[in-house]
Design a protein around this nucleic acid. Structure first.
Lengths: 228, 228
DNA sequence: TATAACTTGCTGGACAACAAGCAAGTCACA
DNA sequence: TGTGACTTGCTTGTTGTCCAGCAAGTTATA
């Protein structure tokens, strides 16, 4: 019965706890992002991960804990991306506006390449950030990015409020088209996945932010490019 | 038993179908926006509306139909708001940039005053716009607004692509803080509901859009302000 | 006006579907 | 042989949907 019943015993039938754990996290991330927490059952996660109904529960205890593990892994990735972006900006000797242009473009691309992260955070925000609140290092990525921008672009301390708003706008502009493809973009007869649209959009977003920052960067007395 | 059991018989115990229907729609809108479709039961809706568990089903048949009725009512309101905004812009004799500034500010305020609509559409987008797709007049509001902008701001037809992107950016910038209050904004140590923040934000958003549109409005040969 | 026949708004019980969590079982591998 | 990696069966709770019934009107008829 065991041999005949299972249609796809697949090669990774070998037992491998870390591998299964990863597979479950991957599957859960995909499903939670696509359907949301409530609409995703542990059965679904198991099927998507190629394990049985009960395995997600075996590894993560409760559904909420699996969800939090997914969130945590996602946020870790973002944090790391922000840090490496910051390193790159720090190492650059370009003028502030060029650095900003590069940073915004990079962020735009990062978001585009990680739509599941966006959808996950979006759902989390809509649900009031309940799960997120009980996670240790959740919002520091944004803070770090902000500090990097303020420092690297040599913005006058009095302009930090404006820097925060620019940061918010960068997020808003880079996220929107990832989420609203099926509704708003279609409504405006735009194809959210076409390379042409995305190239247009990228240029537009970078331009908007850079224009918005103009006359506000490089206002500090010290010369930029030589930190410390 | 009938007299003693009911703790709050309330004055509107009179039977009134339209009133009950509205109450159910209101309750469902609130709950769907706050918790999402899956996390809201018809029991919840009934309780929130002050009717019994079975009444939402009695009026709307199935849960999905109630949800679509909520969406439809919401979209109707938006459509109407867009139209009246357009009328106002048409009637104005100000220069294009002033009209644009007013329109963006009005949109910002409208979104702020209708967070449930935003959350509802946001969830709908995350779910792939499934329900929305089967509704008749769903995306025309955006189209109408776009046409209004292009026409009123006397944008050269070749700049229509750019106008579309500006429109998208206006939406993105006006929506973001409504959704991401509990997560991103808190992460940046901003208070999403404080009047100070909102006033800052409003000015910032309007400025960004107007700056982005500069050198692009009023490029058509005809003089603006005298349509037809 | 009185009363019976009928409609309509609304309720709450029944039921099937399904999901989460637990526990006992099975199987691979050291 | 034992331990850990899974699976499967079961319990319990929740939810959507259907439906029978009741009460507040409304209309017809005498």
């Amino acid at each position: 019965m065991t041999a005949a019943a299972n249609p796809a015993p697949r090669a990774d039938r070998e037992r491998n706890a870390p591998r299964s754990r990863e597979a479950i996290l991957d599957a859960a991330e995909r499903l939670f992002a696509a359907r949301g927490y409530e609409a995703t059952s542990l059965s679904d996660v198991g099927a998507e991960a190629g394990v049985s109904r009960g395995t997600p529960g075996y590894f993560f205890g409760a559904k909420a804990q699996l969800y939090r593990a997914v969130l945590e892994r996602c946020l870790g990735r973002v944090r790391q991306a922000v840090r490496s972006g910051r390193e790159r900006a720090l190492a650059s000797r370009e003028p502030p506006e060029v650095v900003l242009r590069g940073a915004v473009g990079e962020y735009f691309d990062f978001i585009l390449a990680n739509p599941d992260f966006v959808r996950l955070l979006e759902r989390e925000a809509l649900d009031g950030g309940r799960h997120l609140a009980s996670l240790p290092p959740h919002l520091e990525a944004a803070q770090e990015a902000l500090e990097a921008i303020v420092a690297e672009l040599a913005i006058d301390p009095s302009g930090e409020t404006e820097a925060r708003h620019l940061m918010l706008s960068m997020l808003a502009l880079s996220w929107f088209h990832v989420v609203h493809g099926p509704t708003v973009l279609r409504g405006l007869a735009l194809e959210p996945d076409s390379p042409v649209f995305l190239e247009e959009r990228r240029r537009h977003v970078v331009d908007l932010i850079v224009r918005g920052a103009r006359d506000r960067v490089g206002t500090r007395p010290e010369a930029p490019g030589a930190p410390g």
